[in-house]
Write a protein that binds this DNA or RNA. Structure first.
Lengths: 302, 302
DNA sequence: CAAGCTTGTTCAGAATTTTAGATATGACGA
DNA sequence: TCGTCATATCTAAAATTCTGAACAAGCTTG
């Protein structure tokens, strides 16, 4: 027998008003109701909960009991989530989407992402976000399959049919290795011969579309995600290209060193933000895209 | 004009039932109500929110709209906090206190505290906890002033009038310093002469009751909290006694070394758990105390 | 210390909301 | 095409909640 007691939001709202106003009559005025209605609501609430919320013994003033204080605290939490519901519904009524799902290339600098998402949450507190970090072609795939509505990734991997994409500032790719590595400045390898050393490159699992980005060496390890590549580089295993913002701290701290490679043509990893043409993002998603572009412009100013 | 629309918990509950059952009729059966009542509740909810929760266009089946899905998610959150309120009230009805406030001596091993509090939260999920970390006499003071109901601290500092206290296993106090320190084994100081080196000791701000615990040196710094002492020791400034569990990791990692001191008589810092006689803790607090004691017994078994 | 004001409770009737049950209608499957 | 199942709609009845007034018990003020 599920009998969760017929609590009502209104009762809780009345309780909160009384607690805030400090008196039944005050709450009644604030709620535009008769005092007796307030009294009645509190009464039924008390009997439904089975505990006294107010100290009625001595004085006639509305003084919360200790139990009452506790219930008020809980009631606030209930009222808050109800308020969230209303806010969310308000957004939906105004055409906001129910959620925004984003796939991001692991190359995309996380500070820029975090910054954009922070703004997004301020602007659209009621719209939940779904975030996936993927690499290379997986971004386009998520976009096409509808798993995500917005994709941020390398433009090489976006065939444009059916997708609308906007260019963003790319990230600088720099060749790095651990300080002890032979290719490192001051290392014992002669310059111009990086081909002979183990290169770590990013690839993807899927059999199709296996072109790689910036392969120089013969001796190559293919890694499925950028974090693993990062970890191996830090451990001193091989060398490889990394997005500059991601290794800046490591280079500054001396955990990695930037390699001098004349024949390195990795240059800039181009980035763009894209969405499907036939299911464009709603207002919130649109806003997020524009936020990323604006961020881009601001960066370009330096 | 605050007009938050007269949502009711019951409406949301009905919505959740429908979403779960997959049909109005099914939800009606589950709720022991007529189908028309369910239909009515959903109808009014939809009109109050101003959006369609179900796709009624083509088929007659109860299919949530995308907006409906979003609202269901929010409704779940509201229902959850309402459930929390009910659970809390149930506890209060059974005599649970509205919260348990604890002051703990900084010397008390944090693993033991965390362990006990974890169990506490499993056993009493609805009872909020208020925790303060203090040192020495401040514990007794909090207890007496009523700021906290349960105190865990060194027994030297508990004058027993009006307080009921139970002995716990104490913590071993060991003299430590950074590896480079002259007193360290292999250091250049001759043993038996620690008095000449800077000792860090714990003390308290208050002018009254300024006795210190285990003072050996002449050259002394008095610190207000154990964390600062810990930090200074790690930084290689002075030596001092520390609770063994708190520096075990540091000693194992070589960041601190244990000093050999024949005339060190700090030994064991005794601990006890106490509460005021005239306002004993409620069932939850009582349980926490017993949990600490039981933990003690379990430790003694090794 | 008593009058005057405010506050909380109680009660009866009224207004509102919610329910059950019957009926209509669309969707689905045999 | 028919029978079954599910939802929407309607009406009357049932339940809940509101108001307004009467009353009792502080608190304030003169």
């Amino acid at each position: 027998m599920t009998k969760p007691a017929p609590l009502s939001l209104d009762q809780l709202q009345v309780l909160l008003s009384v607690a805030e106003a400090g008196s039944f009559a005050g709450a009644a005025r604030r709620l535009n109701r008769a005092t007796s209605a307030v009294s009645y609501a509190v009464d039924t609430l008390e009997s439904q909960l089975g505990i006294a919320l107010f100290d009625r013994g001595t004085t006639r003033r509305a003084k919360l009991s200790t139990a009452g204080e506790a219930v008020v605290a809980e009631a606030k939490s209930v009222a808050y989530s109800a308020q969230m519901l209303r806010a969310r519904v308000k957004g939906l009524r105004e055409g906001l989407e129910t959620e925004v799902s984003v796939v991001v290339d692991a190359m995309f600098p996380s500070e820029r992402l975090v910054e954009a998402l922070k703004n997004f949450h301020v602007r659209f507190p009621t719209v939940p976000l779904r975030l996936k970090l993927e690499a290379l072609g997986e971004i386009e795939r998520s976009l096409r399959s509808g798993t995500a509505v917005i994709g941020i990734g390398g433009s090489v991997h976006m065939k444009s049919e059916g997708l609308r994409s906007i260019q963003l500032a790319g990230v600088q790719l720099v060749p790095v290795a651990a300080p002890g590595h032979p290719l490192a400045p001051g290392g014992r390898a002669k310059p111009g011969a990086p081909r002979e050393h183990l290169q770590l490159i990013l690839t993807e699992q899927s059999a199709t579309d296996r072109r790689d980005f910036g392969v120089v060496s013969v001796n190559v390890w293919r890694l499925g995600d950028l974090a693993s590549k990062h970890a191996l580089l830090l451990a001193g295993i091989g060398w490889g290209g990394m997005p500059e913002p991601m290794v800046r701290a490591d280079v500054d701290a001396g955990r990695l060193v930037r390699l001098q490679m004349p024949d390195w043509r990795g240059g800039v990893y181009p980035l763009q933000v894209a969405h499907k043409n036939d299911s464009p993002p709603g207002p919130a998603g649109q806003w997020l895209i524009e936020c990323l572009i604006a961020q881009d412009d601001a960066l370009a100013r330096f």
